[in-house]
Nucleic acid binder design. Structure first.
Lengths: 130, 130
DNA sequence: CAGGATCCAGAAAGATACTG
DNA sequence: CAGTATCTTTCTGGATCCTG
């Protein structure tokens, strides 16, 4: 699997149409402040809306709803509404979502490992720039 | 390496201070429209500013400059200015940047593989929602 | 409880013009 | 060539109020 080939496909896809570039397509919504945190949180098991609000710090109702909709739309999570007296809705990872967590977690591990180095690079850069 | 532990650290870090959450910290700037594309493009070797502009479709001078600065600041790339008559500046991946491409590329491979499934999930969702 | 609807301030990003 | 500066537009997300 030649690197160039991968890169070329990526860039050409981006050039043609943002909607057809797989990388941008998924990275964009992974980029949202919250998607990643919600996915990681759901990795511990199904959770209800309220539990997610409490579990993901500082997220607003609006953003949580929006994030959940996007993740559901893309097939990363599923939504189960129980028609109880007061509505109760449960979200859980789909197989697709679970499989996504594998490369995502690898990236996170890298980040955690290198974070110190990145922070030092920043300090150095900022010091040089006054 | 227990999953829970990783998740917990992530969430607590996010709760405390956005600037200290490693995941958000790096994901945020990976999320920018262009960082990923620039990094992948530079994986083929050092490139000059103009070459990057032509190579990364539709990027504006402003955004390219900004992206390069951030990547340089975080230590992912290095910048070499040659004091020729007309300025010439070359950018190249640092070892840190190269090592970052490993997990990043794994994520991209996943995305490319599953993109069809994601798109189908979207179509299905949109069809149901009318 | 789990949202939907609306308003609005601030950040992000495109277009354009200028410079060492 | 490789940027910087400025203006303008678009987008994002928080706050608030409402509902089945």
């Amino acid at each position: 699997m030649p690197t160039n080939e991968l890169r070329t496909r990526v860039l050409l896809a981006a050039a043609d149409d943002p909607g057809k570039c797989a990388v941008r397509d998924v990275l964009d919504h992974l980029a949202g402040k919250w998607s990643t945190l919600v996915l990681l949180y759901l990795d511990d098991g199904p959770r209800r809306f309220g539990a997610l609000r409490r579990g993901v710090p500082r997220i607003s109702k609006r953003m949580l709803t929006q994030t959940l909709r996007e993740l559901e739309r893309d097939g990363f999570i599923t939504r189960h509404a129980f028609p109880t007296k007061l509505p109760s809705v449960e979200y859980r990872l789909s197989p697709l979502g679970e499989s996504f967590l594998v490369p995502l977690r690898a990236l996170i591990v890298w980040v955690e490992k290198q974070h110190g180095q990145i922070r030092r690079a920043r300090t150095r850069y900022d010091a040089r720039a006054d």
